[in-house]
Nucleic acid binder design. Sequence first.
DNA 1: CTACTACTTCAAGTCAACTTGAAGTCAAGT
DNA 2: ACTTGACTTCAAGTTGACTTGAAGTAGTAG
Lengths: 140, 140
Amino acid sequence: MLDITELSRKSGVPASKLRYYEEVGLIRSVGRKGLRRVFEPDVLPRLALIALGQAAGFSLAEIRGMLGQGKEPSIDRDMLAAKADAVDRHIKELSALRDGLRHAATCTAPSHLECPTFQRLMRIALTRQGMRKKVRPTRQ
Amino acid sequence: MLDITELSRKSGVPASKLRYYEEVGLIRSVGRKGLRRVFEPDVLPRLALIALGQAAGFSLAEIRGMLGQGKEPSIDRDMLAAKADAVDRHIKELSALRDGLRHAATCTAPSHLECPTFQRLMRIALTRQGMRKKVRPTRQ
DNA sequence: CTACTACTTCAAGTCAACTTGAAGTCAAGT
DNA sequence: ACTTGACTTCAAGTTGACTTGAAGTAGTAG
């Protein structure tokens, strides 16, 4: 059993965030010691999953859906497979971006617009336009 | 030369977003026809680059930094290489997540906590904890 | 018993990236 | 000349994911 400060220290997640996560139903405390929340140690892997899900561009609501409320993830297998496919598509886009960046860093073509590698990058970028699955950075 | 409606139609980017992007210095209009902004066609690849950069988890400020203001990207090669490395690390995380998801979709182990694939996923997730490079979905 | 500290709640603030709405303006068609 | 429609500006609103601040309270040290 961990109080919120211990959990915060072990996980690296600020206490305010832990309270927020509990409030929105992502984690659960199993009781109180005085005022203080007490958590079971299995919230640690759960927090790791949450962080990973965020890194993949899922909203907290989606992550809550994936994790379920019980301890056992108990998740819909088809949905998981679909999510995996979505992540895979995202990876492909990012691979193209990485290659494009690396190329741009070394390419000495007169104009990027004339460079075939750049052209390919553009095509992939434009392909992406339709599918509205974006991602953006979080402050801090 | 394109007016804002044509640019919006060709790029799939709503006009309000185009105005916003101009306001924050991501794109430039080259003049007005009456009230209406007029753009050069080379903003089209630029918009594609912006979308791709967002997909990679960069903020608009970072993207503005990468693209520069002129037509020629004129970007710092070292920074580009560093960005490419960052994207590559992100890809590795996502690959782990994808594998974890696929595994979870098919795994019939009694408890995920006992499953070695899940364990591996956890280790990678926890590795990520230190580096504050997150990403989250955009509405619409 | 009193202080002190670290927690508690709850409301409000913040941030990026946009969108929406009101009120105005221009050029093109009738 | 007048209407129409699509643009214009500018301020304010929205969303998700938090953080911050004020005011309160519970366990512990002295």
